[in-house]
Design a protein around this nucleic acid. Structure first.
Length: 567
RNA sequence: UGGGCCGUCGCCAAGCGGUAAGGCCCCGGAUUUUGAUUCCGGUAUCCCCAGGUUCGAAUCCUGGCGGCCCAGCCA
């Protein structure tokens, strides 16, 4: 294997998996799962977990990754989310095949195991209410006290558990608790509740149940029942692992296997919040258009913004997997989408802020088709026609009466190349006498410069343009970060988050010009508007009559950067 | 002197006792009908700090310091 073909180093989880495979620990199998709770939309942080779980399965022969909805809390969950989660996982390019499950599929065995734990003396029915339980739990530095119901007989607990299931009691009256250790320094081990009464309709099981298992109880058993080998989750569950193992140890011989829980650090990214509560607040306040607003870090938002599945997967690959607290820069995500779109997005021209130019050397009725390649490096992407006519638009910022140093665009008396067309010279600047604003430019073109550069002089700049007649008006939405601080999560206090919102996060330009025909592309089509960036035909607001494009990301802009240095 | 986890370049991240990979960002320079792309080149004598073990330590030991998570009948 040559040097640059070397496989990249495996992250610590993949190392564990590879090692387990080598030693035959799980019978040579790799089964993972992605276990979202259907209580919200998937976001970029979920993408990291999806890429890890499905990735590990895909990379190993015979590997499998289940999609499992962790639906143990009917009060917070909805079927709507199940649909959107399925859509997003598929869109990201992953396939659970026939392995889509619900934790609620296991409610019956979960209940039976509960009876068994009671019979074996490992669980009891408790009558403490929420406040009492909090008092009995102790604190981080003081041990808790045992519930007065802890030592009631198994028979009594069993009877009560059955009556709980039968619906004889109101919510909160009883709970089923694991009997572990109230003095444990790990609070999760202080006789945690594993079943509670909830007279709630469940989106999958309807009114079949009025007692529901908690996450800690349901998750480990669900994993075991599905034959999961490696149960990958984020760091905040590290303290839960002893409980995960404790439950499965009590059920040894009853459930077939004992998966290994491994934790990794969750994704934290600059300028973004990801908690359901905060995302919800943004939606409710109307700061954003909805969960799929192109500024949202949701998968649907990224999709609408123009991010591709491949770019998101590449991002997840580049950030890696570790246990280190992290704060990933936005530039890394942007680099991923640029890399993808640079190769795949067809080029087109758009003028965001049009300035009219009359080419005095072209007849009023002249219309010449010029061929423009759709991609400078990839001829297979074909070409299209641009029409050379007397009246055109150029970008207002591509002309300067008093150019800054190094400016290589159009100036009075100067020349510039129009991309895919001719070199023009600016002969006259027409201004509004009152305001002094530039209204129009009069230019002449050099007919010998179509596919050739002049030999007697050097023309340094190339700018984009569009014919007035054969171009179309469009709305273009340019986005910046939603927040004006790189760490909105920290800065976010209570309900007061408006002060964190970047007032320029959305700029709507409604008088842009685009090449004719672009508006008929399917929603979601992405173009590179040359010299500007990547733009995606909006899937929500665009019509053929009124095209709307979202700027996915701008091109790298070394000129703009250089300009800003001077400020 | 509650428990758990983490600390390698501005940001991610390899490294697993043999003398600091890679990516992003940044800075030079070449090519360019996108100030894009591409292409070269540069960027940690040092791995939170202090001791120790060793011929040799980012990697082992000891002691500090800093950060994150946990007191839901949420997940």
């Amino acid at each position: 294997m040559s040097k640059n073909e070397e496989a990249p180093p495996l992250d610590f989880i993949r190392q564990i998996v590879a090692n387990d495979l080598a030693t035959g620990k799980h019978g040579g199998k790799v089964v993972t799962r992605f276990p979202p709770e259907p209580n919200g939309f998937l976001h970029i942080g979920h993408a990291k977990s999806i890429c890890l779980n499905f990735g590990v399965a895909r990379e190993n022969a015979g590997g499998q990754c289940n999609l499992r909805f962790d639906d143990t809390n009917p009060l917070k969950e909805e079927d709507l989310y199940i649909q959107s989660i399925r859509t997003d996982v598929k869109w990201l390019g992953f396939d659970w095949q026939e392995h889509m499950y619900y934790a609620s599929d296991y409610f019956e065995p979960l209940y039976q195991f509960g009876e068994r734990l009671i019979q074996d003396g490992h669980a009891f029915i408790c009558e403490l209410n929420v406040e009492q339980m909090r008092e009995y739990r102790g604190t981080l530095t003081e041990p808790g006290r045992e519930s007065p119901w802890r030592n009631r007989s198994s028979q009594e607990s069993l009877g009560l558990f059955r009556r709980m299931r039968a619906g004889e009691f109101p919510e909160g009256r009883y709970t089923l608790r694991a009997k572990i250790d109230m003095a444990s320094p790990n609070i999760n081990m202080r006789d945690p509740v594993i079943y509670r009464i909830l007279h709630a309709h469940h989106h999958q099981t309807g009114d079949q149940w009025c007692i529901y298992p908690t996450y800690d109880y349901a998750h480990c058993i669900s994993d075991a029942l599905e034959g999961i080998t490696h149960s990958l989750c984020t760091l905040e569950f590290e303290d839960h692992r002893p409980l995960y193992d404790w439950i499965l140890d009590r059920l040894e011989g009853v459930v077939g296997c004992h998966p290994q829980q491994i934790e990794f650090s969750r994704l934290v990214m600059e300028y973004t919040v990801v908690s359901k509560r905060k995302l919800n607040a943004l939606v409710r306040s109307g700061v954003v258009d909805g969960w799929d607003d192109p500024r949202m870090p949701t998968i649907s938002g990224l999709r609408r913004r123009g991010y591709t599945p491949a770019a998101i997967r590449e991002f997840c690959r580049r950030i890696g997997i570790s246990k280190t607290p992290n704060n990933v820069e936005l530039s890394l995500l942007e680099s991923c989408i640029r890399d993808d779109l640079e190769q795949h997005a067809p080029r087109a021209m758009a003028v965001l802020d049009p300035l009219k130019v009359v080419i005095t050397t072209v007849d009023p009725d002249h219309c010449q088709a010029l061929t423009a390649a759709n991609h400078p490096q990839n001829p297979e992407m074909g070409s299209r026609s641009l029409y050379w006519m007397r009246e055109i638009f150029i970008e207002r910022e591509d002309f300067a009466e008093n150019p800054p140093k190094q400016f290589k665009r159009l100036v009075p008396g100067g020349e510039v190349r129009l991309r895919h067309a001719y070199v023009i010279r600016c002969d006259e600047v027409i201004k509004d006498p009152a305001s002094g604003a530039v209204l129009e430019l009069r230019c002449s073109h050099d007919p010998n410069t179509l596919h050739a550069n002049p030999t007697d002089r050097k023309v340094k700049g190339v700018i984009h343009w569009l014919p007035v007649q054969r171009s179309r008006q469009a709305e273009i939405r340019c986005y910046e970060t939603l927040f004006n601080t790189p760490n909105p999560d920290e800065a976010w206090q209570g309900e007061d988050f408006m002060r964190l919102i970047n007032p320029n996060s959305l700029q709507i330009l409604s008088h842009c010009r685009i090449e004719e025909g672009l508006q008929n592309s399917p929603a979601g089509t992405i173009f590179q508007f040359e010299r500007q960036g990547y733009f995606c035909l909006d899937s929500k607001h665009a019509t053929a009559e009124r095209p709307v494009f979202n700027r996915t990301v701008g091109l790298r802009d070394s000129w703009g950067k250089q300009q800003n240095k001077g400020d």
